[in-house]
């Protein structure tokens, strides 16, 4: 009764050309939905970008520079466009939402509706089917979001040129350049894996988004340490660079905030803890005294640590690198589970 060992029959695999139709057919509705969402946001970005450019041009063209009307043109530009607002928040989450939205249903919907019993018992087999569904999805979200990141870069150019919002700013960096593709890819991979583990679309999507958000918070903490920050004693750091911290030294030794406070309070100013900013104690300070100049005259040196704008692409590559590695690890885990998981 022991099954007789028979050499495994060699059957050629189902071609990728055929499987590509299967993938296209299942992806096209998702693609249409994404296109609709991105079109709305792109429309806003183009419109807002053009308006911002014309306001910025008015400011640049204004002479004499120190006149009240030119000051007004600058305020008009800065107040109108420096706050990212709700659209900025949506942009920030978009790579995760798009990635999760594409990734989560790929395995979860098959498992939820039972169609995996059809899809995975065809001649192509489940692994080939999964590769045909997952690989184009991953490449697709990365490419689409990279294109979208380029549009955000275009939109933000006046804010960068004017030194209002540096490219390394946490609201800009992850939605532009290469990192935006990495973030979409990680959202996608989280969606795929969560879909396989949950076997239902909505919980998988929720889990993927929550995990993605946690990761984004973590990345915002570690990003500014990809390379050791530079320090400068210049008081006039270009707004394109991203300032991290500020402190005072005397004779090359760091002076504690408490000590600085003590010096400042003596002349009626105070420095709230660690921020480097100096505020006036109402009614106590002599308005003709500049506290920073006062400290400098008394032998103190202000040191600023920052990441220079020139490191933007280096950081983009670093972020894309680890995000891609993470996404590939998540997808590898998904394939591993998929091969072993009893249906």
């Amino acid at each position: 009764m022991t099954p007789v060992a028979v050499p495994t029959m060699h059957v050629r695999p189902v071609s990728w050309t055929r499987l590509s139709w299967v993938s296209w057919r299942r992806a096209r509705a998702t693609l249409a939905a994404i296109a609709a969402v991105l079109a709305v946001i792109a429309f806003y970005l183009v419109l807002n970008g053009e308006r911002m450019r014309s306001t910025y041009a008015t400011h640049l063209a204004c002479t004499p520079v120190h006149s009240a009307s030119c000051q007004f043109a600058w305020e008009n530009f800065r107040n109108g466009y420096s706050q990212p607002g709700l659209p900025g928040v949506i942009l920030l989450f978009l790579p995760g939402i798009i990635g999760g939205f594409v990734g989560a249903p790929i395995l979860a919907r098959e498992l939820e509706t039972g169609t995996f019993r059809y899809a995975w018992t065809q001649g192509a087999g489940r692994m080939r089917w999964a590769i045909a569904a997952i690989v184009p999805g991953a490449v697709g979200v990365a490419v689409i979001m990279a294109g979208f990141g380029a549009l955000v870069t275009w939109h933000n150019k006046p804010l960068l040129d004017s030194g209002i919002t540096p490219r390394l700013h946490p609201t800009v960096f992850p939605v532009t350049g290469l990192a935006v593709a990495g973030w979409a890819l990680v959202g996608f991979a989280l969606g795929v894996l969560a879909g396989l583990l949950w076997r239902r679309v909505l919980p998988a999507l929720a889990t993927a988004l929550a995990a993605w958000f946690g990761l984004a918070l973590l990345a915002a903490q570690i990003r500014m340490h990809y390379l050791p920050p530079l320090t400068t004693t210049s008081l006039d750091l270009s707004g394109k660079n991203f300032g991290i911290d500020q402190w005072w030294t005397k004779s090359g030794v760091r002076v504690s905030d408490a000590a600085i406070n003590a010096v400042l309070q003596a002349i009626g100013f105070q420095q709230p803890g660690g921020s480097g900013k100096i505020t006036v104690n109402p009614g106590k300070a002599d308005p003709s005294v500049d506290p920073v100049q006062y400290l400098i005259q008394h032998g103190y040196t202000q040191v600023t640590s920052y990441q220079p704008d020139s490191r933007y692409w280096t950081f983009q590559w670093i972020e894309l690198g680890w995000l891609t590695a993470l996404a590939l690890a998540l997808l590898a885990a998904a394939f591993w589970f998929l091969r072993r998981r009893p249906a």
């Binding site: 055929r18 499987l19 001649g123 192509a124």
Partner: peptide, 12 residues
């Protein structure tokens, strides 16, 4: 589409 998909998921 179901027919076409099943065709594309199989050798024959």
């Amino acid at each position: 589409d179901m027919v076409h998909q099943t065709r594309n998921l199989n050798l024959s």
